[in-house]
Amino acid sequence: MFWKGRGRTEVAAVVVPFDADRALVEAAKQDPGAFEQLYRKYVAQIYSLALYETRDPHAAEDITEGVFLKALAALPKFREQGEGEESTFKVWLYAIARNVISNQRRRDRRHPEDPIELALHLRAQDDPAATAETRLEAQRALAAVMELPPERRQAVVLRFVNELSAREIGQIMGKSEGAVRVLIHRALASVRRQLEP
């Protein structure tokens, strides 16, 4: 999303990038009630990431809860540093999520639990033939992604599910943009190998 700046007449259509979160973050700092808009915007994204990482809906809910409570508590300290359309709030929130997920993993290692039987029920609303094919395709792709090493899997989920850019993923994972691109390239190569008959 872009604002078209009011440049001088001789400057044609100066495009000033606009970060959609910036106004919401500032509003939430002034009025904590406004935080709900940020919460509604990102709750599914954070939950989705947590579920991919934990494969456990209960753990994903705990993580989601932890992320937003932490974000709310830390919001007054948050400083928007982003330029362009990429929101540093989004990156900041995902970084919190990654941290909470990591803590959860450490805790789980200390207190290992029995594997929880999870389920994925794919039901399509469209014609049955396409549904069966699509379902199988989705299952195989998902299985291949879940078999990736954690870092590659996380990069793939952030890229294809959460649709973050390589730059944003790099900021979240503490890597360069180039390193993330290589990570995703290798992850896709692994997935492709997995999907080969």
Binding site: L51, A119, L120, R140, L142, A143, M146
Partner: peptide
């Protein structure tokens, strides 16, 4: 939820 057996066959039981 994602099936725990995703690495094998992603059993649909959800």
């Amino acid at each position: 939820a994602i099936a725990s057996g995703v690495s094998r066959a992603l059993p649909i039981a959800g």
